[in-house]
């Protein structure tokens, strides 16, 4: 972790989707923020879950124009909430090991187990839906081409947000005086 502070050269971690600089800034941010408390973080997680569910449900809107607008609005909202979620956990859910200390790695890994369980279940549900939609029958008639925009984007958003969502939900409130 000290290496990150001493090395002025920024680096982007493509797999994690974060840069060294933004992780260091997020971890050393001493400014008070509601996102440091568990209550507001859980509210953020609930809002993200609600937006993702709503995005998946847009598939049932018949009017193309309304459906498209709803999808775009909900996708933008979902991406904004995803960005807030990442910041609320100080990017611990995404940061590579070399930028975290052993407590942060242990915390992240414990929550990864839950998150990846969730992603596996989500993938299974998505796979079943996909086979139903492409396999003919009532669901294919009802959804058809709409499947890829609503449900697929909700699935992708949910799968990428889950590690941050689980961590944000479980992480205790940060004590105020730790920097003293």
């Amino acid at each position: 972790m000290n290496d990150a502070k001493q090395n002025p050269k920024d680096r982007f971690y493509w797999i994690e989707g974060v840069s060294r600089g933004e992780v260091v800034r997020a971890l050393s941010d001493h400014r008070p923020s509601p996102l440091r408390r568990q209550g507001p973080r859980r509210l953020l997680v609930s809002s993200a879950a609600l937006v993702m569910t709503a995005l998946a449900l847009t598939v049932f809107i018949d009017q193309t124009k309304i459906r498209t607008y709803s999808e775009v609005i909900l996708m933008v909202l979902g991406l904004c909430l995803f960005a807030f979620l990442r910041q609320s956990v100080r990017l611990i859910s995404e940061a590579p090991n070399e930028l975290l200390d052993e407590r942060q790695i242990a915390l992240r890994d414990a929550n990864y187990k839950v998150a990846y369980g969730g992603i596996s279940t989500l993938t299974l549900v998505y796979g079943v839906l996909l086979s139903l939609v492409t396999g003919g029958g009532w669901l294919e008639e009802q959804l058809g081409d709409r499947f890829w925009t609503g449900i697929a984007s909700s699935y992708l958003l949910c799968a990428s947000s889950l590690p941050a969502m689980v961590l944000a939900w479980n992480m205790p409130s940060e004590p105020q005086d730790d920097a003293a």
Binding site: M1, L27, D178
Partner: peptide, 25 residues
């Protein structure tokens, strides 16, 4: 030493020192 100074000396985040001191880690 402040928590930040001790954290820098041992290469961890300042909050980890707080968690250690409180016996939470």
């Amino acid at each position: 030493l402040s928590r930040q100074q001790l954290a820098d000396a041992v290469g961890v985040h300042y909050q980890t020192i707080g968690y250690l001191e409180r016996g939470e880690y």
